[in-house]
Nucleic acid binder design. Structure first.
Length: 836
RNA sequence: GGGCGGAUGGCGGAAUUGGUAGACGCGCAUGCCUUAGGAGCAUGUGGGGAAACUCAUAGAGGUUCAAGUCCUCUUCCGCCCACCA
């Protein structure tokens, strides 16, 4: 029977049907069994799956299937991250309902995933746009609100005047609206935040527990959280006739405090108003501040832009020496970080140096560069930011600057000139979106309560959840939050006073909320009583292996960690970290560039399946590169995979003879022993490659090596022991290959396995170490490190034996040319080096 | 500017963690076979050389009996962060 495209499709459909009907991948919690939770980052349902998905899910599927064969109770679920802008954009374009469009995409996507033969427990499928899912987003939000971890404050958003709407950062192209090209401005809106900073310390600390995460992901999170130790220094400022004000400046370089020659405030700094009111330059300064405020963030934060600033005419007193130094306002100081005010030390900070040069501000060297001890301010071409000894710093002169950081901080503490402090780069999480296709924020504002002096921002009572999205709202992409256009949605009864014209919050939640806890929901996806079943979660969680793209290294993974910590504080889970192991798969490239729709260089997985079948596609992707590396797509690779599967198919179809007895080792000849050694070597290598670092590419290659050996192994007519050995070899090939190409292997296992059960229920083969032993080994002989000969020696040869054999060899003697052997280095069973 | 990875044949990639560089596969070459197929099989395939040999893992040094692997410097590429005080 030929292994044709037609045959492949028939086989693949057959087994997909059987898996479904027999519920092969259904995974009920079973405390008697060891569990393993494999999860891939669920997709946004855009309709078609792309090669990135195929790679991600194929990697996960191999892991899941191997664990099944190794006897674990494996949870391997799939769902859809279904809220988000593309659905709204599609709705605008096609005049359809985002829900309809999304569910249509999900249907298409599910069909494609099934065609790939992934081992999902489809009964657990979920979509985040389902009210039975997002009601729990609302529930979690309310729990956070109760504990003061969800709060509202005004903050700037990107705003398009022409569309009358906010824009996500990704929708701002060259500082203009992506749709109408109107320049984007910053506008202050009241918005909801989640207080992730409450968990800054544990989020940083617990990174240490993530030993099985890629170190670069840990490093990125560390940077993002950004803990920095420093000192808040209290400068003072006094306007004639008024009492003095404090200007708190944050610095990590307290050692340079005696070199501070001016102070800079962010334009938004609260003290600015007082500083400039009634001064001669007030108008000019205000104009400058307005100009900076009008600039979009992306423009202002461009590193190479020239730093601009203006002198306030005021002076601040440096607490360590009483010196009066000018106060400036400049765009390079950010209100969001530190205290929004800095002390400038132009000699030892490059940004300050450039600014001081530009505006002719004074400089003073306070750290001596050991390479240039006589340097004068006038010689400086750049700030010296390295290590050195303090000068011009009074009692601290002569001290190493690293020690001085500590000494000066302590001295300032004692004299109340400053305080040791910690600053975090991590900001609270802005979750309000002026969008339709997201989770409504379950808050009601009551005008009546407000007028009557009561609390008027009120949480929706838990038993009134979910707050459902209204249907039939026209999405236009213009004019603010779409939910304001549904009066049915907007007006609600006040849960406090019963007033029936209270208004709902009309913003929706950021979609990252949805993905911050879905891994918990998978443990009990149909539970309608709780956010998730505590017992089920206790059994399945944490996720043993999480797999996804590096692009989620920061936000999604950080938010998930944050939610997990919060849910632990609620007493719902008993672990700190949701993902034990993380694998970040590399991108799929075509001709050296990332495959993407916008580049137009995509390869459609469906077309490959159509021609070669899912198994060939899976094998090609796994064989082409290690999972973490980039993968250069090649059609030839699929062809090669297809050829290899053909060989396996023909081997099982043509050379396997059913009904032979198990062979016994005493009648093995050398060929038999060699085959058994190859078989066990393959078992060992494939098992190790899969479990230690997921090296699927080399696992496949060792299977190919074994196949080559099996092909060469001759079975005489009549078979006997040799036929039995061959049969065993065929079974091993099928079992080892099964996680990679499941359809083909199920089909072959039905023939060679002799059972009714799916191959995922068959035991993963065990390696017989004794069969790996060889009677003789090859030893390489080098002279002065150069390869000069290879010898087959008995496996138990001693160093002395090898030395004798080597030195007796005619060719070796020729190279020695009678010179005395200075040293003889021997690495057992591998290499000998003769040093002359 | 900071952080983290990389650089090995015509190509994708191996290399037991310091011990035969180029496994496995693609491609290519020659041959065989045939129910001319998306074939299949056999042999070969880093460079130079007729060979003995020799050169070769981005480049330059170093450590070592032995370096793709460890150390120092340089070049190039990728990713992430970035006026973070």
């Amino acid at each position: 029977m030929p292994y044709t495209t037609h045959e492949i499709h028939k086989i693949e459909e057959k087994w997909q049907k059987i898996w479904q009907e027999k519920q092969v991948f259904k995974a009920p919690a079973d405390p008697a069994r060891k569990k393993y939770y494999v999860l891939e980052m669920f997709p946004y349902p855009s309709g078609k799956i792309h090669m990135g998905h195929v790679r991600n899910y194929t990697i996960a599927d191999v892991i899941a299937r191997v664990k099944m064969m190794q006897g674990y109770n494996v949870l391997h679920p799939m769902g859809y991250d279904a809220f988000g802008q593309p659905a709204e954009n599609a709705a605008i374009k096609n005049k359809t309902d985002p829900a309809k469009w999304t569910y249509g995409c999900i249907d298409q996507m599910r069909a494609e995933l099934k065609r790939m033969g992934f081992s999902y427990d489809w009964d657990r499928e979920l979509a985040t746009c389902d009210p039975q899912y997002y009601r729990w987003n609302q529930w979690i939000f309310l729990k956070m609100y109760e504990r003061g971890l969800a709060y509202k404050k005004a903050s700037p958003v990107n705003w398009c005047e022409s569309c009358q709407t906010t824009l996500a950062n990704e929708e701002v192209v060259n500082d203009a609206c992506w749709r109408c090209k109107t320049p984007v401005v910053q506008k202050n809106l009241e918005q909801w935040y989640l207080k992730i900073t409450h968990y800054a310390e544990p989020l940083l600390e617990d990174l240490k527990k993530l030993a099985n995460w890629p170190s670069r992901v840990v490093a990125m999170q560390e940077n993002w959280i950004g803990k920095s130790h420093g000192v808040n220094i209290f400068f003072t400022w006094k306007k004639t006739g008024e009492r003095s004000e404090r200007i708190t400046v944050f610095t990590t370089r307290a050692d340079t405090i005696f070199g501070a020659t001016y102070v800079v405030l962010a334009p938004e700094h609260p003290l600015v108003e007082k500083l400039i009111a009634g001064t001669p330059d007030e108008k000019k300064i205000r104009a400058f501040i307005e100009k900076v405020a009008g600039e979009s963030k992306s423009l202002r934060l461009t590193g190479d832009k020239k730093k601009e600033g203006i002198f306030t005419g005021q002076y601040a007193v440096n607490p360590v020496n009483g010196e009066e130094i000018p106060i400036w306002i400049a765009d390079y100081v950010l209100m969001e970080y530190g205290t929004g005010a800095i002390m400038a030390v132009p000699t030892h900070d490059q940004r300050d140096f450039l600014f001081a040069k530009e505006h002719k501000l004074p400089m003073r060297i306070v750290i001596q560069d050991p390479a240039n001890p006589a340097a004068k301010v006038s010689d400086l071409k750049a700030a010296y930011e390295g290590q050195g000894t303090l000068v011009n710093s009074k009692q601290f002169d002569g001290i190493d600057n690293e020690a001085a950081k500590k000494n000066i901080a302590e001295w300032m503490m004692q004299n109340k000139m400053g305080e040791v402090t910690v600053h975090w780069r991590l900001r609270d999480w802005l979750i309000s979106r002026q969008r339709y296709w997201g989770t409504p924020i379950p808050i009601i504002y009551c005008k009546k309560c407000r007028e009557e002096g009561r609390k008027w921002t009120l949480p929706v009572p838990e038993d009134k959840l979910p707050v459902e999205l209204p249907k039939k709202i026209e999405i236009t992409g213009r004019g603010g939050s779409p939910l304001t256009r549904s009066s049915e949605f907007l007006y609600a009864k006040c849960p406090q006073c019963g007033y029936d014209h209270a208004t709902r919050e009309f913003d929706t939640m950021a979609t990252f909320i949805d993905s911050s806890w879905y891994f918990l929901r998978f443990c009990s996806p149909r539970n309608d009583k709780d956010v998730f079943d505590k017992k089920e979660a206790a059994y399945w969680m944490p996720v043993d292996q999480y797999i996804g793209g590096i692009e989620h290294a920061i936000l999604h993974l950080l938010y998930s960690r944050f939610f997990t910590k919060f849910l632990k504080d609620l007493g719902l889970v008993n672990f700190d970290e949701p993902f034990v192991r993380l694998l970040t798969q590399g991108m799929v490239l075509k001709d050296g560039e990332v495959m993407s729709k916008s580049r137009g260089n995509t390869v459609d997985p469906d077309a490959i399946i159509e021609r070669y079948g899912a198994d060939s596609l899976r094998l090609a992707i796994l064989f082409a590169a290690p999972p973490e590396d980039q993968l250069e797509w090649s059609d030839a690779g699929v062809d090669a995979a297809w050829k290899f599967l053909n060989r396996v198919w023909h081997l099982a179809q043509q050379r396997f003879v059913p009904g032979t007895r198990e062979p016994s080792a005493e009648n093995f000849d050398q060929q038999d022993k060699d085959l058994e050694r190859e078989r066990n070597a393959a078992i060992k290598k494939v098992t190790e490659d899969i479990s230690q670092g997921y090296k699927f590419n080399t696992a496949v290659s060792s299977l190919m090596i074994f196949m080559n050996a099996v092909d060469k192994y001759a079975v005489p007519a009549g078979g006997g022991v040799k036929q039995a050995l061959l049969n065993r070899a065929v079974r091993t090939v099928v079992l080892l290959l099964a996680p990679f190409t499941p359809h083909l292997c199920e089909e072959l296992w039905e023939k060679v396995g002799g059972g009714e059960q799916s191959v995922v229920r068959a035991a993963w083969p065990a390696c017989d170490e004794a069969a790996l032993k060889q009677d003789s080994v090859q030893v390489v002989v080098q002279i002065n490190g150069k390869l000069r000969g290879k010898f087959q020696v008995a496996a138990d040869s001693s160093e002395e034996d090898v030395r004798k054999i080597a030195l007796a060899d005619a060719k070796i003697r020729e190279f020695l040319a009678g010179k005395p052997v200075k040293r003889f280095v021997y690495v057992a069973g591998k290499v000998a080096n003769i040093v002359l």
